[in-house]
Amino acid sequence: MADEDDEIILSELDDDELVQQMFDDLYDGLKEEIEEGVNILLDRGWTPYDVLTKALVGGMTIVGNDFRDGILFVPEVLLAANAMKGGMAILKPLLAETGAPRMGKMVIGTVKGDIHDIGKNLVSMMMEGAGFEVVDLGINNPVEKYLDALKAEDADILGMSALLTTTMPYMKVVIDTMKEQGIRDNYIVLVGGAPLNEEFGRAIGADAYCRDAAVAVETAKQFIARKHNQMAAG
């Protein structure tokens, strides 16, 4: 009886309550509820960009913070990400139609010899949520694939991911090749993955090591802003 009486009808909540409820539902990884919440907000006239940033990204930021602080663990983050992905699938075509602001373009992929993509996929999703266009090259990428995509897509940012200590040195191969070709400074290079750290990022010549998806988004925003400032000054 109590369960039935306590069941929350999303459509009966006002906007603020609904967004708070969506934060809770994201936290609990409830994909169907998130999809329902997104559709309700759109029906109420919210722009796709506002739904994305205020409801989904806002909720995932809480998830990311609790992961960083050791309150949530990988399985819970993946469930939350899966729920956000459900909402993103509804919003993505609408965002393109409504001309949401674009922050910049990122080419991202897991390095050669490595098939792990959980972290990379989280970064891709959060970067898209922050208004970046993301070209995801998937897993096991040789240097040529990164460089071809950077050029073909006229990207601003290169993101490289690795989970294995045996594969992370390949990031240096990519950066060194960029230097040899004289294109290193044309791009912002961000690296991430469980075994990496700031020292490694510096040693291989990346612009920054990003500890998690939220840091990747903030770092990318800072570097893009700096790039725009430099262009304005120049």
Binding site: V74, P75, L78, N82
Partner: peptide
């Protein structure tokens, strides 16, 4: 540790 006992869908 991967939570597959609770969330096999992962």
């Amino acid at each position: 540790p991967l939570g597959l006992d609770r969330h096999p869908d992962l």
